[in-house]
């Protein structure tokens, strides 16, 4: 390393501890040691000048701002979680209310809700004539296409929820079975149900929906009533090949 390289390096990096620089400083007889000394003093001045005063409490203020920001973010995250939880609860609540509304307005629910006003009809035992039964259906602008079931003890036109209906009761082995026929209601959901102590069946017939209800009636009584009313409302089933 020559003196020019040394001085250029020291002018750029006065605090360098590069062994090559230090070796040149210690061995040079051309005044590089003095140059190095002056450079160090100059650097002391530069360092002192650059050490501008730092505002009091700077670090604490930075930490406080940081802690505050973190806390705010934490509160924000907590609020977001709470909002999400509330949304989920509201959604569940909404779905629950919809389900409840839908359930309370289902045909089985409306049919069962209709029964408390008609409990006396279950106690009747005197059979009605076919004409009387037919007359009950005519009241709802419909006609029986087949013979009325045996042992019909009650026929009356009623309203089940919003639906006009023919309310009839058949009796078999002292087991009353209620039939609620809603002419024109074509969106029934066929199936069986048990609700508030009532066993029920919902049937989709050609001209409307039939709901059968009974309290503790036998399966045989329910099926007999179903067959009887189906044949009466839709007409006798066409003869099968075996019957021909």
């Amino acid at each position: 390393m020559n003196c020019l390289d040394f001085r250029r390096r020291i002018s750029a990096e006065p605090r360098s501890r590069d062994p090559a620089l230090l070796a040149h400083r210690d061995s040079c007889t051309e005044g590089c040691a003095a140059f190095w000394q002056r450079a160090q003093r100059f650097e002391d001045d530069v360092e002192a000048a650059m050490a501008v005063p730092v505002p009091d409490g700077l670090a604490d203020r930075i930490l406080l701002a940081h802690a505050t920001g973190e806390r705010r973010a934490q509160v924000g995250r907590r609020r977001a979680w709470l909002a999400m939880a509330a949304s989920v609860l509201i959604a569940f609540g909404g779905v629950g209310m919809l389900w409840r509304y839908s359930d309370q307005h289902s045909l089985p629910a409306l049919a069962v809700a209709h029964m408390p006003w008609e409990m006396d009809s279950l106690a009747l035992t005197r059979p009605m004539t076919d004409d009387q039964v037919e007359a009950g259906f005519v009241g709802r602008a419909t006609h029986l296409k087949g013979p009325a079931p045996g042992m019909v003890t009650y026929v009356h036109d009623c309203t089940v929820g919003p639906y006009p209906a023919v309310h009839a009761v058949t009796r078999m082995d002292d087991e009353p079975v209620v039939a609620l026929y809603m002419p024109g209601k074509m969106d029934g959901k066929p199936g069986t149900f048990h609700r508030d102590g009532w066993d029920g069946r919902e049937l989709q017939l050609h001209g409307g929906t039939l709901v059968l209800l009974a309290q503790g009636a036998s399966r045989k009584a329910m099926e007999t009533a179903e067959r009887g009313w189906r044949a009466a409302i839709e007409g006798p089933a066409p003869a099968s090949i075996g019957q021909i």
């Binding site: 002056r38 003093r41 100059f42 001045d45 530069v46 000048a49 501008v52």
Partner: peptide, 15 residues
């Protein structure tokens, strides 16, 4: 003559 650099205020101004 870097020692002529003067006090910190002067050096600061120069920087």
């Amino acid at each position: 003559s870097p020692e002529r650099s003067g006090d910190a205020a002067q050096v600061r101004e120069a920087i």
